[in-house]
Design a protein around this nucleic acid. Structure first.
Lengths: 150, 150
DNA sequence: GGCAATCCGACCATCCTGGTAGGATATGAG
DNA sequence: CTCATATCCTACCAGGATGGTCGGATTGCC
């Protein structure tokens, strides 16, 4: 399993928000019920999305969440990154700029042949996430829903 | 971190084997020393590669491991798959054919919009792993080694 | 005021990961 | 034959991440 359930839940949540009109906020409870997810856990998930500026919120009665931008302008790479942190196939990719942990073979720096491989994998992942917008997923969700009703 | 250290160690091991002439086997100890990895743990890693038919082994004194095929004919997707198991971005992708666990929303089967996303991600990963051969990594390793010596 | 909601931090059980330990087995060298 | 070297196999274990719960503080509509 490459991505944690935070990503799964978070993406579901975003799709659900994308299906709602942005006029009035949607409560987490409604989403938790619709998707069958634990409310308390969803709170933690949506907090990440909010801090990343992807959703906005209103407190109090009749409060809730809505997309900060139209779904067309939200690339899934931003969503997943907000939920999972940096998208790195390997440990040494994470701290590249921050600490000096890197891989066990930092001494060999340039000689690290595996880095070439992980770079390509990372590229493949990011590219696929960048070329997918939330709007596509919402659209897909709507279509398959119709197909089921019919 | 998307891939575990098994993948990291296993890939290093394969590169190391690729650098050796396949005439005579290379002992794990030599690789462990060269790469600074724990021998006992490498044993578990190499066992997976052997069971996947990627390396062969000889027991006893002067025994060791060597590539089962030329490095040019080894796609990294096979290596990573042997080390990590199925390459699945999400839980529900793993048991697709075996058990009936799938995602928490199996009831919605077709309606699962996130599946579209994970499919694309999975595609991106597999494509990048399929188009990279062990020979490339070995070549890269040799080049950067030269660059360092010079 | 009361209810519905977001917010926040602490807590917790369980699983996975990375690694160790110990031994059984095979085999070439002397 | 024996010894050193090596693969092979299984069990075990500590620590951290994961997925989730709980309790409460705060906010704001009715």
């Amino acid at each position: 399993m490459i991505f944690s359930s935070k990503a799964e839940y978070g993406v579901r949540l975003m799709v659900e928000l994308g299906r709602q009109s942005p006029e009035q906020p949607t409560s987490l409870k409604a989403i938790a019920d619709a998707e069958g997810l634990p409310l308390a856990y969803l709170e933690q998930v949506v907090a990440r999305l909010r801090k990343a500026g992807l959703v906005m919120s209103a407190r109090g009665a009749h409060g809730g969440y809505w997309l900060a931008r139209p779904a067309e302008e939200i690339a899934m790479v931003d969503v997943v990154q907000a939920l999972e942190g940096a998208i790195a196939p390997m440990e040494c990719f994470v701290h590249d700029h921050t600490e000096r942990v890197l891989c066990s073979h930092e001494a060999d720096a340039g000689r690290c042949a595996t880095k070439l491989l992980w770079m390509r994998v990372q590229g493949g992942i990011i590219r696929s996430l960048q070329t997918t917008t939330l709007a596509e997923l919402v659209e897909f969700s709507r279509r398959t829903e119709l197909a089921q009703t019919a």
